[in-house]
Design a protein around this nucleic acid. Structure first.
Length: 584
RNA sequence: GGUCCUGUGGUGUAGCGGUUAACAUGCCAGUCUGUCACACUGGAGAUCGCGGGUUCGAUUCCCGUCAGGACCGCCA
């Protein structure tokens, strides 16, 4: 027996027994004739005590933080107890001690209240991960994947694997590319998601698939975006949209209950994509509070106010949010700050109105009495309210007002962290026109099935075609998304046509898939959840690096291993590759 | 690709056109029998990210560069 207990286990009930413990030295307190050592392992902390007459006291005094020890001794009651510690009633009177490993002085304090900045933490990630807080998060992550697996196994899903070395595809994010040695000049790509493979499983006759799958996208990072991330990937045959949503709701319900002990109601409310954009200006609205967007175009059709008039005449949008009791909370100076903040979304200005029986604000003098009356009725302004108005092209207005709504709600504390307002955003448009490239793109992805009633519009009015696409949103974050898929090769080709892919391109990129569709394809659909985001949500952190054991920096650099790094010319030539100049 | 913020002992911060570069913590030594952020006394430890410029003089101001972070674009 290498040890008899973990360091969170011993209590008054164990007094008098001989135990063997191991762990890291978390903290030594040397009181002269009395030495205490906090021994930390995966589960917790136990205090070791060395009395004045203990022959090991000298040994204990030489021990430093983070040494790895194995000790044997007797459990005894403390003369002064620590109620903050699970094992705070007892301590170990040490009889033998073995130093399994010594330790250099660590570059950071290994405790929850570490003072190290994130780059230091990432460089010495293995030390950072010793902190109980990080242990707790990674254990929560494990707990979540365990519950997910149990749930999906229980619902009859098969955990099936898909390749990591696969084919690069043009649509979507930038691929991570892997050069082939056998086929010099050719490349694999790491999967952005197992999308086509899971559909092929359906064509293979598996009816319920899942995988906790690593995905790779070579795009710029954010606090909640890493170049490699994990999806809970699910696909089902012979089902409709309701089946996918209901299954997802059961899974989230189970997760919230088991991880946080929170009961949530199903079914989750639904918003159409169109509604979400109108009422919240985003496809991932935070629905924990009101302050919805109010469209004011109708009021200002013939206004004398030049700013609104110009926007109205050029097909722009005039929208507002009513900040209830915002008049006092938002001084002129703070509003100027908000105006500056929304400039990053392209908003050229922010009009504001205060109300205390009548409107006041810089723009009031440009508006007629009728317009002000209509404004009051439309926005429901009351004593002490603040109205913020943005007028510009729709994408700018929506982005700016969404930012304002979220920022102000946070500042005014209009919501609670533990409100889980799961919402489905459904009925996504199939296509989105890109002005720059002068072509349509798939809003979700090109394999999404469209509403039967819209089939005739594919060629005539692609931007009106709605798809069976759905996103799961909570607290203003996208947790997952999916769709019903096309199971008919003619329809699949028609979609590719709208996307501007000719037959040759379709065959080169997706020929294998178009062919597979010809051999009998069950109707199918699925969904994928961002595991990292689920962990963030349940572990209450806004930093994705906190929930990934070995994450990368904002520039996709691993500070621990220093990847990516140079490779030798020999390695390159084996792959048929040659570096261009500009070598350091 | 762009905007903004940060870079000073091991760690985290303060600071300022001329300083003995300050504080906390960690580290080392000593005192201490009940600590648990032990306490107290003393000590060591910094080419102020790197390069250039302005200046009599730059850690401080300016430019560039590198690194880290936040955001915009991007992420079907």
């Amino acid at each position: 027996m290498t040890y008899t207990h973990h360091n969170n286990e011993l209590t008054m009930a164990d007094i008098g027994t001989t135990v063997k413990l191991k762990g890291f030295v978390s903290k030594k307190r040397d009181l002269g004739n009395l030495v205490f050592i906090d021994l930390r392992d995966q589960e917790g902390i136990t205090q070791l005590a060395f009395d004045a007459d203990n022959p090991l006291k000298a040994t204990a005094e030489a021990i430093k933080n983070e040494f790895v020890l194995s000790v044997q001794g007797t459990v005894r009651e403390r003369s002064s107890k620590n109620p903050n510690l699970r094992t705070g009633d007892i301590e170990i009177d040490v009889a033998t001690i073995e130093v399994l490993s010594t330790a250099k002085q660590p570059p950071m304090i290994i405790a929850d209240e570490t003072d190290a900045l994130e780059d230091t933490r990432l460089k010495y990630r293995y030390l950072d991960l010793r902190r109980p807080r990080m242990h707790k998060i990674l254990k929560t992550r494990h707990h979540i994947t365990r519950v997910v697996r149990e749930f999906l196994n229980g619902e009859g899903f098969y955990d099936l694997e898909t390749p990591m070395l696969t084919k690069s595809t043009p649509e979507g994010a930038r691929d991570y590319i892997v050069p082939s040695r056998n086929h010099k000049g050719s490349f694999y790509a790491l999967p952005q998601s197992p999308q086509l493979f899971k559909q092929l499983f359906m064509i293979s006759g598996f009816e319920k698939y899942y995988q906790i799958a690593r995905c790779f996208r070579d795009e710029d990072l954010r606090a909640d975006r890493q170049p490699e991330f994990t999806q809970i990937d699910v696909e089902m045959s012979f089902i409709d949209q309701e089946a996918v949503l209901a299954m997802s709701e059961r899974m989230m319900q189970r997760l919230l209950k088991e991880i946080r002990g929170i009961d949530i109601k199903t079914p989750f409310p639904r918003l159409t994509y169109k509604e979400a954009l109108e009422r919240f200006g985003t496809d991932k609205p935070d629905t924990r509070f009101g302050m919805e967007h109010i469209t004011l175009n109708a009021i200002f059709k013939a206004t004398a106010f030049k700013v609104f008039k110009a926007v109205s005449d050029t097909g722009g949008l005039i929208k507002a949010i009513n900040v209830k009791n915002g008049e006092k909370a938002y001084s002129r100076k703070k509003i100027d700050g908000l105006t500056k903040a929304i400039a990053k979304y392209g908003a050229k200005g922010l009009a504001f109105f205060k109300y205390d029986g009548s409107f006041s604000g810089p723009a009031v003098k440009f508006l007629s009495d009728t317009e002000l009356e209509n404004l009051k009725t439309k926005t429901g302004m009351e004593q002490g309210d603040l109205l913020l108005v943005v007028a510009d092209k729709p994408s700018v207005v929506n982005a700016a007002l969404n930012y304002l709504r979220n920022t102000i709600a946070k500042e005014m504390e209009l919501y609670d962290e533990d409100t889980f307002d799961f919402t489905w955003v459904v009925d996504w448009p199939m296509f989105e026109y890109n002005e720059e490239d002068r072509r349509y793109y798939a809003l979700h992805h090109p394999f999404t099935r469209i509403h039967d009633s819209d089939k005739t519009k594919i060629e005539t009015a692609p931007d009106q075609v709605l798809a069976y696409g759905y996103d799961l949103v909570v607290q203003g974050q996208e947790l997952g998304g999916g769709s019903l898929r096309i199971h008919d090769q003619d329809m699949q080709k028609a979609i590719f046509n709208v996307l501007g892919m000719d037959e040759a391109a379709q065959n080169a990129q997706f020929g294998f898939f178009l062919e597979a569709l010809q051999y009998g394809t069950p109707p199918h659909g699925g969904i994928a959840f961002g595991l990292d985001r689920i962990v963030m949500l349940l572990a209450k952190t806004s930093n994705m690096r906190d929930v990934i054991a070995f994450p990368k920096t904002a520039s996709a650099h691993c500070l621990l291993t220093d990847a990516p790094s140079h490779v030798s010319n020999a390695q390159l030539s084996e792959l048929g590759l040659q570096k261009k100049s500009r070598d350091e």
